[in-house]
Amino acid sequence: MDERGKKVFELAPLIVAAHELKAPLVLLRQLSLQLARESDPEVVAEIAQRIRLTSERSLRLVNGLSKTARLEGAMFKLEPIVVNNVAHEVITELEPLSTALGQKIEIKTRQNVLAIGHFDLVRTILMGLIDNSLMSHKTGDKPIEVRFRNSGENLQILVRDFGEIIEASRLKSLSSRLNSAPTPLPSRPNSTGLGLFVAAKFSEYMNGGLSVTRHRQGGLTFKVTLPASRQLSLI
């Protein structure tokens, strides 16, 4: 790669981040223009709610991104955490957004599942993956599903949506880049490659990983693998 090529490659994450943050900013601008012209109190309240939810979504992206910079200094202590409780908390926090988008999210587990990780990082991962699914999930009867799979050694967190399917070749290319640079999801312009990049970085920091599979019926499953906690038997 020549010097110019290297420079572009180095700047790529920054360009993707800038592009991804542009979308909510454009929406905020449009909503504020609409708000200035609106007098119906009900419509005003709805626009205000959309402005709040869009701002919160953008802030989550920025917060996740700024945390990745702190990973280098190993500032996050890893310990046993109850992952399904984290997922419940994330879903509760995202409820206003999912309701406004007409989407449902379901957790499929009846028992506690534990992993070795950091509460805040796992929370940010789940927030990014579920947010991503919310933005690309086709509104319908099927909810977005959060499931867990314990293999004894590892715990898998699976987030399944029913959004646009992506081509196998593009999925392969996305999978190989998840951890190296924010990569926009082909066919899913509203979903955030930035959120996935953050999720991949945090999973890796906690000695795990992030992968993605597609479904013939449409949609994707994002899979986070973390070391399982042996304390499971004590709970």
Binding site: A23, L27, Q30, L31, L33, R37, T54, P189, N190
Partner: peptide, 14 residues
């Protein structure tokens, strides 16, 4: 536009 809220908002202004 795939951004439903953006499309709705532009639609209202037109």
């Amino acid at each position: 536009d795939d951004d439903k809220w953006f499309a709705e908002s532009v639609g209202k202004s037109l």
